[in-house]
């Protein structure tokens, strides 16, 4: 039994260590999120504010191709509100009966409208740097939301011998400390309606939470199901262990 526990312990220690193999830039500090922990949920108000920041700032360059307007109902918007939000965007549909493509207001079932028609156009408009799609950004980076928050608040004057080309900026948390994106946020840039502070820090927190939701919209259902599954398995294991003990007690 000693051997067995030692073996399992070794395995348990090894797996996370080996999983965290890659990465080199400065590690973003760990943040306390509303969704952290095994019971964490998304803060709907923060999600709505984060969406507002995305809509008014980020969406000028960053697409979110995997999301549909209907998904915004998760943020606490009503069906009518979602319809109104979608209606502010224009999508190209068609061909119609005459074979022509035509523009129409977006519907809740439509995907988020991208700022550029394609990646080449996006690159061309941004000095050759492609602004990444944000649908999965919070899962596509190590320490996702912590990282996004850190980058948004990590702009500084160039340190040491970092040489910046025109159109490049210094950021503590980027690999090589160089980022093509100019500091996107400034205090007071987005007017919040719920009285939250309108600072870069608050914007960054809200948009990070929003992006986490965008990447993992089923997180709440996942954790809730998980708690039930774990409790069930614990109880079932307890019973089966008792059954086993009872059964084996008769052996000699």
């Amino acid at each position: 039994m000693k051997l067995f526990s030692a073996f399992c312990l070794g395995l348990a220690l090894m797996v996370p260590v080996s999983a965290m193999a890659a990465g080199d830039a400065e590690t973003p500090p760990k943040q306390q999120w509303h969704f952290s922990g095994p019971l964490g949920t998304y803060d709907r108000a923060a999600l709505q504010r984060g969406f507002q920041v995305y809509r008014q700032v980020c969406s000028a360059c960053h697409s979110m191709k995997l999301l549909s307007y209907r998904n915004l109902e998760d943020l606490g918007y009503s069906e009518a509100q979602v319809k109104a939000i979608a209606g502010e965007y224009t999508v190209t549909d068609g061909p119609n009966d005459e074979g022509e493509m035509f523009d129409r207001p977006a519907l809740p079932s439509d995907r988020f409208v991208s700022p550029y028609p394609n990646d080449a156009a996006a690159k061309y408009a941004n000095n050759g740097a492609l602004p990444p799609d944000m649908s999965l950004l919070a899962k596509a980076r190590k320490n996702g939301p912590d990282y996004i928050y850190a980058v948004l608040t990590g702009y500084e004057e160039p340190h040491g011998d970092t040489h910046l080309l025109p159109g490049q900026h210094y950021n503590k948390y980027m690999a090589g400390h160089v980022i093509a994106m100019a500091p996107p946020l400034s205090d007071g840039l987005v007017a919040y309606e719920d009285g939250s502070s309108t600072t870069v820090d608050q914007y960054s927190r809200d948009v990070s939470e929003f992006l986490m939701w965008a990447a993992e919209p089923k997180m709440e259902a996942r954790k809730q199901t998980g708690v039930k599954a774990i409790l069930f398995l614990l109880a079932f294991f307890g019973i089966m262990y008792a059954v086993k003990k009872k059964l084996w007690a008769g052996l000699h």
């Binding site: 069930f232 109880a235 079932f236 019973i239 089966m240 008792a242 059954v243 009872k246």
Partner: peptide, 11 residues
Amino acid sequence: LYLTAAAFGAV
């Protein structure tokens, strides 16, 4: 015990 175990298995 056996009945409880069977019930858990079924659920």
